[in-house]
């Protein structure tokens, strides 16, 4: 089994974790341990970006994937997000694209935006 070394991205501590099979060391919390095992097997990332917004007080809607998506599918997810056009109003947490690029993960709004001219 190959040994993998990684920097944990779960919290600002940034622990250096070594993973070998199911064995992990260097983590400071269970979330870090679980993340490291996942990272060794198949890395996942949350995608944050913006999508164009029509009729809103602002022109871009900030969005993110509700949960992590496979890292090797990040560009695919991004391309799909970039093709979207969302209509205002939008509530924070609202799904703007379900099952983003077939990952099973929703893309959600991270900001509430009113329609232009309305409060």
């Amino acid at each position: 089994m190959m040994k993998k070394t990684m920097t944990c991205i779960i919290c600002p501590l940034g622990c250096r974790i070594e993973v070998e099979g199911e064995r992990a060391q260097g983590y400071s919390c269970p979330r870090g341990r679980d993340w490291a095992r996942q990272e060794a097997a198949a890395p996942m990332r949350i995608l944050t970006t913006t999508v164009p917004l029509r009729g809103g007080e602002i022109v871009l809607l900030p969005v993110r994937t509700r949960g992590p998506v496979p890292k090797d599918r990040l560009w695919e997810c991004l391309a799909r997000a970039n093709s979207l056009l969302v209509e205002a109003p939008v509530r924070v947490g609202q799904v703007v694209c379900p099952d983003l690029a077939g990952t099973g993960v929703d893309l959600i709004a991270t900001r509430t935006v009113a329609e232009i001219g309305k409060d």
Partner: peptide, 8 residues
């Protein structure tokens, strides 16, 4: 412009 959306 950022390469986004259909009509920005």
């Amino acid at each position: 412009l950022l390469a986004k959306g259909e009509e920005r």
